[in-house]
Nucleic acid binder design. Structure first.
Lengths: 217, 217
DNA sequence: ACCTGAACACCGTTCAAGT
DNA sequence: ACCTGAACACCGTTCAAGT
């Protein structure tokens, strides 16, 4: 292998499953998942679309890889953190990742999360709850609640009229017109449009943690 | 108009926006949203795909109509129901609709819910909370929590390994193999795979309602 | 072992042409 | 006013052919 070949390999990068997924994530972050196609992804990697199939089963395989990469980026708390703080950190850190990659939640909703990083993440959350003294049944309940809360808030954030007001620039006008038909929506619309999601999320998370804690004693 | 023409019109049905959305929902229920295309939907209605554009803006417009139809099918509680029961009923009834049409939650996640039926539904939930004595801020908090919980549990149900074990028929085997790497997942997998979602959902809903109630006094 | 061109069976959407 | 055929610019995926 000559020096030039070596340079080309290094700058263009060798085509691997990981590199494909990496570039797919960057592309989805910039242009949205719906714009992601095998042909465009190939072009981004300096290769024809068909070459991707040498490293990846199909497009769904890429989706699964993207999901697992994002879940894998959620930091895990130290083993000795008290469970309430560990859960709070896991929740807020998960939210942060999901917010940074808004396409991941809808994708998880249809594809699930069963990759190695997702299993590792899940195992850690279950460990925190079990070690805190919850029964297996309550650990299960708690996982479902916490996962639902995190996924649900991601949904709220994704479909927040404030966040997507490019599409709904006439929303406040519309709401004002419908004020007598939907008075409560009209009154609370400003709160919904410009709320701090981090604060909102933690408000609910604390209620859940308190509710779970009451079942421990 | 002759008798025969009248019959044909009645049996084939007149093409309208509502009828298109109705048939689209039935199609998505049977074959999944990802299989829904303008061409197939046209065929289902005995018409070419291009004709649909006379009654509908585009495919997204159909999606929005499908979402609003499903939300509109959630029954609203009587005005004088005590708020805890009203909220519980709204939550479980919403869950029931979302479960009956598994494609609706991922769709809402990307499209939001801003149709007339959705606004009506939202206004009613906000009214229940306001009338219960919550401040506007807490009403807002409560809406976000309840909506998140409902959406989140729909997600859990949709991606439940038990529900999709046609795709993951080897999941229990896989989990067993990884038992030493993910011990808690392995131990709780049966609970997750075969849990009663209705019961799970209400467990969490009660914790949320209790937590909100504590802010009322 | 990896990449490619051509092909297949699809998409959503537009638009001029029909009635 | 509503429906259609043909067309445009895309899709994911397969497969024989190249190196």
């Amino acid at each position: 292998m000559t020096y030039d070949e070596d340079m080309a390999t290094r700058t263009r990068g060798t085509l691997t499953r990981d590199r494909i997924i990496e570039v797919a994530i960057a592309f989805a972050d910039e242009h949205g998942v719906e714009a992601l196609s095998m042909r465009k992804l190939g072009a981004e990697l300096g290769v024809e679309a068909m070459s991707l199939y040498n490293h990846v089963d199909n497009k769904d395989d890429i989706y699964d890889g993207m999901i697992d990469f994002v879940v894998g980026a959620i930091p895990l708390p130290d083993e000795d953190t008290v469970w309430q703080n560990a859960i709070r950190a896991l929740g807020t850190d998960a939210m942060e990742q999901f917010s940074a990659h808004p396409w991941v939640a809808p994708l998880m909703m249809t594809r699930g999360m069963f990759g190695p990083a997702a299993l590792r993440f899940m195992d850690r959350v279950l460990a925190v709850l079990s070690n805190a003294g919850f029964t297996d049944e309550d650990t299960h309940h708690a996982w479902q609640m916490l996962a639902s809360h995190t996924m649900g808030y991601t949904f709220q954030q994704a479909t927040n009229p404030g966040a997507i007001d490019d599409k709904f620039d006439g929303l406040d006008v519309l709401v004002a017109q419908l004020a007598e038909e939907f008075p409560h929506v009209a009154r609370l619309a400003p709160l919904l449009a410009q709320c701090e999601f981090r604060h909102e999320f933690e408000f609910g998370l604390d209620i859940i943690i308190d509710g779970l804690e009451a079942r421990l004693n």
